[in-house]
Amino acid sequence: MNDAINFMNIEGLKFFGRVNASISHELKNILAIISETTGFLNDLTELAKQGKDLKLSLIESCSKSIAEEIQRGFTTIKQMNSFAHNVDVPIKETNLGDLLDLTVKLSKFLSFASTVHTPAPDQKMKPVLTCPFLLQNLIYQVLCFAYESVGPEGKVDICFNSKDDNGIHLLFSLPVTMETKDFPTEKIQKSADVLGIAITVKNSEFILWIPFSSDKITQMASLL
């Protein structure tokens, strides 16, 4: 169990750093757009002072663009905040739909992200007792693997199957048949083991079976 906790700490820190770096990149892009758009407005004002015609449509499109980028910034900061608060309670009952939704959104900040289709979060879904931060790390790793497999132009479909009495199946469907030897990677398998999650690969699908609760999780909860 100590090994598992050490692994969690190291991998968790790496994951935290990676996500924060991608968020800061997104925020820099947003600020760069706002900065250039306000600069463009200033340029237009200067030209108008020199007697050049000022097109109202240009002013409108600039202010619309600034408003959109501010909204994009708010959304990004909200996601960053939700992500940061995932570590507040190490083990807790978690809605998988919400967790998947946030993880996919965070992964979209990666430059190599593909198109992802996810089910809408369902509040009636039975929660799972897990470490949300580590589960997010595992799903993020699977997403990165999927993105690298299908490329930026590719598409990844994700859905849940909650017919099982003991847990939920999370299915990642890819348009390409996977080489089973490549997946799961050692790190993904280890992350899944720590959480008591089983991984199977079927042609072009990765399936994560996430238990509603597991001995590993309750044991970990007593140590944290």
């Binding site: 892009n29 760069a32 250039e36 600069g39 030209l47 663009s65 980028e69």
Partner: peptide, 16 residues
């Protein structure tokens, strides 16, 4: 740049 809006805005400014 893959950030299309940034590319568009900075291009507009540079053209001036």
């Amino acid at each position: 740049d893959d950030e299309v809006k940034f590319l568009q805005t900075i291009t507009d400014r540079l053209k001036l």
